[in-house]
Design a protein around this nucleic acid. Structure first.
Lengths: 126, 126
DNA sequence: TCTTGACTTGGATTGCGTCCATCGTAGGAT
DNA sequence: ATCCTACGATGGACGCAATCCAAGTCAAGA
């Protein structure tokens, strides 16, 4: 555990936090001016491998990193501005996929993404 | 409707088809040797806007295009080889998100992705 | 035939992520 | 205290996916 990794872990803390790698880097630089992007990527990769952080690809653009990995949850994404909210899962999401529909796959996790417009984007009409 | 767009639409046809833009381009070139990648991107974007094709970002790498947009469905993705299968939805996926958990969002669609190992990858051990 | 506008083309460019050679540094051995 | 060693950090180069843009092509209508 180096100071660089500690800073990355500290930056990723809180509720409804879904930063891109560049955003993590920008915030890490405020505390450790010489930290490089490669190091941020390494640290993020390690946190993901440890299960401390969840990696999201909600828009086909930059991946986002969600520190709320302790408790499973789904995501609510604004189609216009990209805002993301965590929402609690209702029931067992795995129940939606009965054995006979699994094509022999060993299913280990489920990702649910709700898409729509957030209140402020919905207000600004279509 | 130009010949280029028709070819792109024809390439994207069938069950469990989830091609990347480059794969679509490669197949389109077989029928129309001079078609450019930019044109393929344009045609795909139009098909997505028309609701004829669904765009997927399952791995944070190249987007994939799914022509099975007529009937809603979910996806089963192999974490190792990337194989994708369509699976029918069970019940109303929207039911998992009660009004009081929507943070004021206007939710219009839900994406469900099951991740795990396909039979052949599971066979080859961890 | 000429004009117009929509579409296509291909190369340049951007955004995101990874790779790699090199450097720095902490901890152990002497 | 000094030297060795190894792991992590650095930053620049690279690769892939996607988009942008200026120029070219084509078809339909005046």
């Amino acid at each position: 555990m180096t100071s660089q990794r500690r800073v990355v872990a500290e930056v990723l803390d809180g509720e409804h936090v879904h930063l891109t790698a560049d955003e993590v880097h920008a915030r890490a630089v405020e505390r450790l001016p010489e930290i490089s992007r490669a190091t941020v990527y390494n640290a993020l990769g390690e946190l993901v491998a440890l299960g401390e952080v969840v990696e999201l690809s909600t828009d086909g653009r930059a991946k986002r990193y969600d520190p709320n990995a302790r408790h499973p949850h789904h995501h609510l994404v604004c189609s216009r501005c990209g805002t993301i909210r965590d929402v609690p899962p209702a029931g067992d999401p795995m129940a939606g996929l009965p054995e006979e529909e699994r094509f022999g796959f060993t299913v280990s996790k489920v990702e649910v993404t709700y898409r729509g417009l957030c209140p402020s984007c919905a207000g600004r009409a279509a």
